[in-house]
Write a protein that binds this DNA or RNA. Structure first.
Length: 502
RNA sequence: GGGCACGUAGCUCAGGGGUAGAGCAUCUGCCUUUUAAGCAGAGGGUCGGUGGUUCGAGCCCACCCGUGCUCACCA
């Protein structure tokens, strides 16, 4: 038995359970059963209960509480819908009752029996038979739940250590069922987004994660190496340049829901790998895309939450279209009095200093404007708002504004002061694109590690001709954070990145 | 990377130089409608790690590891 489980931290509780496992085997009880036919789940059982016609059910789940009273016992089992109480009487289950004495909180069992209501009014299963399906040899950090007089659920000793919850998400999901709901919502948000896009006829595609050259965003990449080709490969920081190649190829509407990877800091809104939706639609511009985003988000809200009105961080947020559309330059002017577009580099710098930010040496004017925006305007964008028309230096892949010099046709969506998407009329002039790449090279040479590389093949694709195209990128994790009111990106990613244990 | 805080039993937490604590969980006994079941008893700890200071260190000091918050970075 010593070599069965080689946990460095085998403690007396685990030893005890391993002994129980042996005792069960001696009784010829299968401790890791092969299957069990389930025909009912906890919530359905409770909702469909009728006193006059007691139903027979087969249910299975993990034991979450046991109350033994000599020759009868109560237990709660937890299944995919919630918890239900089971009642076990020695007279009814016979020898299984002795086996039940060797079962613990955490074990997974199947029961067959009829539904009844106890003296105290709890709808329960009166078991006629009981089967151990999986023996749990490691104790779960069990919390106790009780409903107080006013009907509120009170939880005692809740498993709360953030580190353990993230590292052992499987335990978190067992003992903190409300966490499960966030991830179910996340899944529904993505599937409703996908069905919305599919219904419009857009094609879901897959583009390389391993790329010989990265692009489509300003970020530091993860680098790996391909042995056979003996070349470095980068994990993608964005899908943009490949998806636009497909538009060149004649796919009029393509999207990809994918993991991107950025080799940067981690905090409440950044995980090194994160999920993005990118969408490119031919013959459309950014005006069209704004309406599209409004509709898509409203669709998701309605499908997943049944409403476009939310209360997030104590504020009422309404996602009903249309959203406000405001000019970046005008909003900065309103907030600071400075016309950043016509102001000199030094004027922008001084203005930034006035707002308590010390510009770092070598920053471009576009970068300074962006910082000024973040400090003076962004926190005020509470209701869903499109901020439109950005300085050209900040957007090397966006098309120049049709009638505002120095700007590009770009928008970002903001809610509660947070960015939820980024989109533009895509730059499809290969000569302009090549020039923008050259400008990025200068920025890189000036020390900007996140400036774009020159992607000559992408320019070549544009030379063949890309139709006018609107493009969108939206961070799924942050959208989920917003809609489920979760404070950290780690609360919406099942297995967030952590430093290795030990 | 900087600052602040935290790390003690399976879980939630007390304890701040002198025998390692509580509740729940666990174990033994009693108990055939309980529900944080109850009653009686018991076991369980490298006090994150390594070095110091001290007669004596969960406790004080240094360094390290991990986590959280925050700032920086980051569309």
């Amino acid at each position: 038995m010593d070599n069965q489980i080689q946990h460095e931290d085998v403690n007396t509780l685990i030893k005890r359970r391993l002994e129980e496992l042996e005792e069960l085997k001696k009784k010829n009880i299968e401790t890791f059963e092969y299957s069990f036919d389930v025909d009912s789940y906890s919530r359905d059982i409770k909702e469909s209960y009728q006193e006059e016609t007691p139903k027979n059910v087969r249910a299975a789940g993990r034991i979450m509480a046991i109350r033994r009273m000599g020759k009868a016992s109560f237990a709660h089992i937890q299944d995919k819908q919630g918890r239900i109480q089971i009642y076990l009487k020695k007279d009814d289950v016979g020898e299984s009752y002795d086996a039940f004495k060797l079962m613990d909180i955490g074990d997974i069992i199947g029961v067959e029996g009829y539904v009844f209501k106890t003296k105290t009014g709890e709808i329960s299963i009166h078991a006629k038979s009981l089967k151990l399906l999986t023996k749990s040899v490691r104790p779960i950090p069990i919390a106790k739940e009780v409903i107080d007089e006013s009907g509120n659920k009170v939880i005692f000793d809740q498993f709360a250590d953030k580190e353990l919850r993230y590292r052992q998400r499987y335990v978190d999901l067992i003992v903190n069922p409300e966490i499960k709901d966030v991830f179910i919502k996340r899944s529904k948000i993505i599937s409703s987004m996908r069905s919305f896009l599919d219904a419009q006829g857009y094609l879901e595609v897959e583009t390389p994660i391993l790329q010989p050259m990265y692009g489509g965003a300003s970020a530091k990449p993860f680098v790996t190496h391909h042995n056979a080709l003996n070349i470095p490969l980068y994990m993608r920081i964005a899908d943009e340049l490949y998806l636009k190649r497909l538009v060149v190829g004649g796919f009029d509407g393509v999207y990809e829901i994918s993991k991107d990877f950025r080799n940067e800091g981690m905090d409440k809104t950044h995980n090194p790998e994160f999920t993005m939706i990118e969408l490119y639609v031919a013959y459309k511009d950014y005006e069209w895309m704004m309406s599209f985003v409004e509709q898509m988000v409203a669709h998701i809200c309605t499908k997943v939450f049944g409403s476009t009105e939310f209360e997030i961080e104590g504020k009422k947020i309404n996602f009903n279209p249309p959203w406000d559309r405001v000019s970046m330059i005008e909003e900065i002017q309103k907030a600071t009095g400075l016309d950043v577009l016509n102001a000199s580099y030094d004027e922008v710098k001084d203005c930034l200093r006035k707002h308590g930010i010390e510009p770092k040496p070598g920053e471009s004017k576009g970068k300074l404007i962006d910082e000024l925006f973040e400090v003076t305007v962004q926190p005020k964008l509470i209701q869903p708002t499109f901020l439109i028309d950005y300085p050209v230096e900040m957007s090397p892949l966006a098309k120049k504004h049709r009638n505002k010099p120095g700007l590009v046709e770009r928008f970002e969506g903001f809610v509660l002061g947070r960015e939820i998407c980024n989109a533009f009329s895509e730059l499809n002039d290969p000569i302009d694109q090549n020039q923008r790449f050259q400008d990025q090279v200068k920025m890189r040479e000036a020390g900007d590690e996140e400036a774009h590389q020159v992607d000559e093949d992408f320019v070549r694709a544009l030379e063949y001709g890309m139709p006018p195209t609107a493009g969108l990128g939206m961070g799924i994790d942050r959208l989920v954070m917003l809609l489920t009111n979760q404070p950290s990106i780690r609360d919406v990613i099942l297995f967030p990145q952590m430093k290795p244990e030990k």
